[in-house]
Amino acid sequence: MVEAISLITFVCLLLYILFGGADYGAGILDFFFKRADRKSIAEAIAAVWEANHVWLILVVVIAFNAFPLLFKTVCISLHIPLTLALIGIVTRGSAFVFRHYDPRDNRYDNPFYNRLFQWSSLLTPFFLGVVFGAMLGGRLRLTGSSSFYDAYIGSWCYPFPLVFGGFLAAFCAYLAAVLFSSENKTLGRSIYPVALRTQAIAVIAGMALLLMPDAWGHTLFSAFLDKPVALLLLGLSLIFAISLSFTLKSQSLHAARILLGAEALSVLLGWVCIDFPRVIHLANGAFLTLYNTAAPAATLKELLIALTTGVLVIVPALIYLFRVFKYKPLTKS
């Protein structure tokens, strides 16, 4: 049962990184856009962005339902970066709709909306990445006998989580750049240089993340080296990344989508390979795992039923939503 719920969580996380990530990325790219591009990107994501972020809510609900101790530990030790990410989420969503629904003609030139939207789009995935990185980094504590700094700041404010955050933000920007450049040819030409830059940044941040030692002096790269399957997945993700840079040039939409999905999937699977079932690396060297934090069987059973019915209705509805807005032509202009 733990495995089934973990699998669903994994899928939610993957979809959040892809869809929510592209959405954050669109906001980061907004920094570099001209007015017309801003408007067409905003119109492209307006109908779907709300649904793209519900994946995060599902992950949280699963966390406190099925793995309550994981949720509690993260909520206490990583209170500060989580709060910052939440403020980012609120600011970002609000700035986006405010800009979209302000009846004034110059709304896409309004520096107030633009700055808020851009900075919150950058900082939210950064802090979410910091949270994720800190869970793996090995400085989280269960008991509160330490100083304020150790318990609430030192738990995340060191190179490994910060690089993780940087990588996630860069990856989001790259995701969006690839998707939007292949979706819309005219837009593609104008964001091609930006896409190349985000690609370079994402690659550098990825390298840095692989080689950055965690609290124990271990690097992710050495962890990948220890497991042949993980190493294979890492290699695959590298191949996907290289192929992606070709699709960026040829602007083929389907290839870009499939490759992006494969890229994110192989990276996440690589992480599962080296870490499953461990989720949090504690400062005392112990681990919080999916098994030692799991809720009682009765809870897991009900959750699994709820999630299965949920997925069965959500997925077709979501596919229909995307079909309507990405493929269906307007009935009247």
């Binding site: 406190f64 099925a66 949720f71 809870t299 009900e302 709820a306 959500i314």
Partner: peptide, 13 residues
């Protein structure tokens, strides 16, 4: 969480 998570999971859907 484990006791009252169920409504939250349906609410999520």
């Amino acid at each position: 969480g484990p006791v009252i998570g169920m409504p939250f999971s349906y609410e999520g859907t």
